[in-house]
């Protein structure tokens, strides 16, 4: 194997390792951190089923964002869905052995790269041209979009602009990563850029604002049932405090009389 192949193979595993460890750490952190008070935001569901519907509407439709800003919603929504379709389309490369029928049918998902780029360009334009959003943007916010645009654009060049890499090598390299049967990867610069940026994206996931993906599921304003009057909601630390201090608090109150 060439040095490039070795480096990229290592890169891939390294980024996956950071992704898995980092994301697990954050998810464990979120789930272990207590939510001491009921703070669901209106319109708040009164039942569990309502919370489920709310999360579905937020995660799949970006409902709150739709209420907030139609343009941001439009660009953001088409970008995210395009990303999902393109992710599915890439699964075939990694599938060991014969690609299943269903993945072969995802060929047309490649056109999702157009809404992907449109969405990202729209979001970038908003960031550059709307003074409020420019004000709140850090360099990393621009770089994140540029990273994604580069991934999308390099992919499109390979798919639609005839800069095809050697597809046999792509398949064997990708499959090899899964089966640990490592092999040579195509050395076309455009392909290397494409996968390098994907590895970067995977690696920075747990240390960047990409944490919005797990975060949304843990957001107490969205995932809580509005039933505090009926069912007592109490955190572990507050309960601890209560049992430790119960007597002294009542004494304090006596004193005030």
């Amino acid at each position: 194997m060439s040095l490039t192949s070795i480096i990229f193979t290592l890169f891939c595993y390294l980024s996956l390792l950071i992704f898995v460890i980092g994301l697990s750490y954050k998810i464990i952190q979120y789930s272990r951190t207590p939510a001491p008070l009921k703070i669901p935001i209106a319109p708040a569901p009164l039942k569990r089923s309502g919370v489920f519907m709310r999360m579905v509407a937020e995660v799949f439709l970006f409902k709150s964002l739709f209420k907030a800003s139609k343009w941001t919603w439009f660009f953001g929504w088409i970008f995210h869905w395009a990303l999902v379709l393109l992710f599915i389309r890439h699964l075939g490369y990694f599938w060991p052995g014969d690609t299943p029928e269903v993945l072969l049918k995802t060929e047309s998902f490649k056109y999702a790269s157009f809404p992907l780029i449109i969405g990202l360009m729209g979001l970038l334009a908003r960031r550059i041209f709307v003074d409020r959003i420019r004000y709140i943007s850090s360099p990393s916010d621009y770089l994140m979009l540029i990273l994604l645009i580069t991934i999308g654009a390099s992919g499109m060049l390979m798919t639609f602009a005839l800069y095809y890499p050697n597809m046999g090598l792509v398949y064997s390299f990708a499959e090899g990563l899964v089966t640990l049967n490592w092999s040579e990867l195509p050395s076309d610069l455009i392909f290397l850029v494409h996968i390098f940026f994907v590895f970067i994206l995977i690696a920075i996931f747990p240390i960047s604002k990409l944490l919005h993906a797990p975060g949304v599921f843990f957001s107490p304003t969205l995932n809580q049932v509005d039933n505090a009057r009926k069912r007592r909601h109490i955190s572990s630390w507050a309960m601890q405090k209560e049992t430790d201090k119960e007597v002294s608090i009542e004494q304090n109150l006596e004193k005030d009389e």
Binding site: P34, T72, L123, I133, S138, L211, H212, V216
Partner: peptide, 23 residues
């Protein structure tokens, strides 16, 4: 941040989309 999930998640999750800027 260790006692309030809200604060911990909210500090991490913001993507600076700007939806709130005019609210």
């Amino acid at each position: 941040t260790s006692k309030y999930r809200s604060v911990q998640v909210f500090l991490d999750a913001c993507v600076k989309c700007g939806a709130c800027t005019d609210k």
